[in-house]
Amino acid sequence: MKKKLIKFYPLIPVFTVYILLFFIGKNVPGMWQLVAMLLFYCALGQAFNIFLGMTGYVDFGYVAFMGVGTYGMALAITRLASIEELGIGIIVAGFALALLMSTLLSLAVGAVALRLRGAYFAIATIGVNEGLRFLIEGARIWNGSEGLIFVSDINNILGRDTADALMTFWADVMVLVIAALAAVVTLYYMRSKIGYALTALREDEDAAKVMGINVTKYKIIAFITSSCFAGLIGAASWALKTPYVFPPEVFEIQYTIEAIIIVLLGGAGTLLGPVAGGLIYGISKYYLAVYVPGFQLLIFAPIIIVIITLFPEGILGMLKNRFQNTGLAHFII
């Protein structure tokens, strides 16, 4: 029984961080904005880690899945706004559509791009978000470059007070729930054959194949899982917090880069890493923008370089080595 429980220990620090963040945000005046940002970055890291961390493949088009998820929520709200009895169910429908759209996109992208390896995969995926953005703008899909604006729709359906609470508070709580879910899924993968297969193919894809691992299958599993979480994050953090979608904003490559930095900073392929990375990244970004506005990138870049140089395996890689063979090792993975 105890052995069974030990398997779940690594979730304790992750959930502790999330719960602490929630209470700090809720009880310290003026902190919610920072907390929301940190939750967003932790969720982003946690979701991206399932693919980047576990397979070692770099997806430069990751933000496209967030963008598509945002559109999923936006479309559900704008198209179903006339059905008033739907109430809060419209949000559920939005998440379902976001999930469906990001799954379909990840299947399409994965089926083609995952046949490529290493740098070739990375290059192929760069095209995805740019291509998608120009397709939406050029072909005037979903209102093209004018985007979708649905503030009034949300207000109509949910009533002004509920809609306000949703945008300023509940959307962030949803991000928290998504981040926690991503952590649970990550741990589940790590402890199952999926995780072992992914580790094997990350370390040596050809050797993995010869050992009986259907590498394409496992890569696609990781890719779809990771992309679905991206879609949910987009739907919660972007569509519900700011009830409008414009293609250039939701297909902005900066978010992909941020996700990569967070995962590598914290420790790729670890459970706690993306949380540590998200916190460090979010806190530095926030306070540097407050205290040295205009110069934040100038200071931020060297900080990242120093951390990566000092801890090439990320913060968690360092902690794991330090606490190896101690009781803490069960908590840190």
Binding site: Y196, R202, E203, D204, D206, A207, A208, V210, G212, G269
Partner: peptide, 29 residues
């Protein structure tokens, strides 16, 4: 990957362990 379950295994001229994984994990794979 379909041949290994039939019972064909091999070792490599230059060993190709899954370096980041532990010895135990390698063999468990």
């Amino acid at each position: 990957y379909k041949r290994a379950p039939l019972g064909i295994a091999r070792t490599f001229q230059i060993p190709r362990p899954f370096c980041g994984a532990t010895v135990r994990e390698n063999i468990a794979v």
